[in-house]
C-alpha cells in the first residue's frame, strides 16, 4: 500500500509478557492517517491487549508506541487521550448513574479548558450541552438524552459509547468490538454509523473485531493477529485470500497450537 502521509500511529516491536505468557509478540504496525484499519484474530490472539498498549492502560514489556512520530510509550492514558487517542471498550463502559447527555457532555468538557473550574455552575457552559445533543442525534439517541445510562438497552449503551468517543474529538478512534454482545438487529445501525464516520475522512479508525464479515466492506486494511504475532497486514481482499490467515482463523489454529 502506498502511503502519502507519515503514519499517525506506529508501533515498533510492541511486546508484552504476563508472567511467562507472551500475549503480544513484537508487533510492528503503521496506521496512516484518515484510514480505517481493523485488527482481527481468533479469541485470545492479543487484540485487546495490543489496544490497551496503544491507549495506555498497559505498559509494554518491550517496544514503543508513536503518535505522529512522538514516543508516547511512557505516557498515561489520560494524557494520551488529551494528545489525540480516544478509545471505546469491549465491555460497555459508560457512567451508569449519569444521564445519557451528561455522559457525552463530560467527554466534551474534558476537551475544553474548564476542567478545574469549581466556582461556576456546569450548566452555565450551555454550549457543551448543545454540542453533546448534536452528537446524540448522530447516534440516534437524542430522544433518550435525559435517561440515566443504566436505563438504556445494551445496544444503546454501545451507541452511547461511540458517542462519547466522537465527543472526545480525538484524531484517532480505537474501537474495541463495537458490536460485541449486541442483538443482531442492532448491528446494522452501528455499522451504518461507522460508515458515516469513515466517509467523513477526518478520523483515523482502528477497530478490533473477531467477526470477519463485519469488516470486509468497511476496512481500508486489515491486520491479523494470531497468538500474539502479526501474521498479515493487507487489504481486505488480500487478507481473506491469505493462506496463513485462513489456517489461523478458520480452525487451523488449534492444530498448530
Amino acid at each position: 500500500m502506498n502511503m502519502p502521509h507519515p503514519p499517525i500511529i506506529e508501533t515498533k516491536d510492541l511486546t508484552i509478557r504476563f508472567g511467562g505468557h507472551l500475549a503480544v509478540d513484537h508487533v510492528s504496525l503503521q496506521i496512516p492517517p484518515f484510514t480505517f484499519k481493523s485488527i482481527i484474530g481468533p479469541n485470545g490472539a492479543g487484540k485487546t491487549t495490543f489496544f490497551n498498549m496503544i491507549s495506555g492502560q498497559y505498559r509494554p514489556t518491550e517496544g514503543k508506541v508513536f503518535l505522529k512520530g512522538k514516543d508516547v510509550t511512557s505516557l498515561s492514558p489520560a494524557i494520551r487521550t488529551q494528545l489525540g487517542i480516544g478509545r471505546s471498550f469491549q465491555l460497555t463502559n459508560v457512567f451508569l448513574s449519569l444521564t445519557v447527555l451528561e455522559n457525552v457532555r463530560l467527554a466534551i468538557q474534558s476537551q475544553k479548558d474548564i476542567g478545574f473550574n469549581f466556582w461556576k455552575n456546569y450548566l452555565s457552559f450551555s454550549e457543551l450541552e448543545n454540542q453533546a445533543y448534536e452528537i446524540l442525534k448522530m447516534v440516534l439517541l437524542d430522544t433518550k438524552w435525559n435517561v440515566p445510562a443504566s436505563g438504556l438497552t445494551h445496544g444503546e449503551q454501545r451507541k452511547l459509547e461511540i458517542a462519547i468517543l466522537l465527543a472526545l474529538e480525538t484524531e484517532v478512534l480505537l474501537l474495541d468490538e463495537p458490536t460485541a454482545g449486541m442483538a443482531l438487529e442492532e448491528v446494522p445501525s452501528i455499522l451504518e454509523l461507522l460508515k458515516q464516520i469513515k466517509n467523513r475522512r477526518d478520523k483515523t479508525i482502528l477497530l478490533v473485531e473477531h467477526k470477519m464479515d463485519v469488516l470486509m466492506a468497511l476496512s481500508d486494511s486489515i491486520a491479523v493477529l494470531h497468538e500474539g504475532r502479526l501474521i498479515a497486514d493487507d487489504t481486505p481482499e488480500a487478507v481473506s485470500k491469505n493462506r496463513e490467515v485462513q489456517e489461523a482463523y478458520f480452525g487451523g489454529g488449534r492444530a498448530r497450537g
Binding site: S55, Q57, S76, P77, A78, I79, T81, Q82, G86, R87, F89, N93, V94, F95, L96, S97, L98, E102, R105, L106, A107, Q109, S110, Q111, I114, G115, F116, N117, F118, W119, K120, N121, Y122, L123, F125, I164, L168
Partner: peptide, 25 residues
C-alpha cells in the same frame, strides 16, 4: 454542580472510563 463536581461524579461511577476521557482523576 460545577464542572469539577461533575467530573467527581464520573469518577465515582467509573474511574477507568473517566481516565480514558482524559481526566487526571
Amino acid at each position: 454542580h460545577s464542572p469539577v463536581g461533575r467530573v467527581l461524579q464520573s469518577i465515582r461511577d467509573n474511574e477507568p472510563r473517566s481516565i480514558a476521557l482524559g481526566y487526571r482523576t
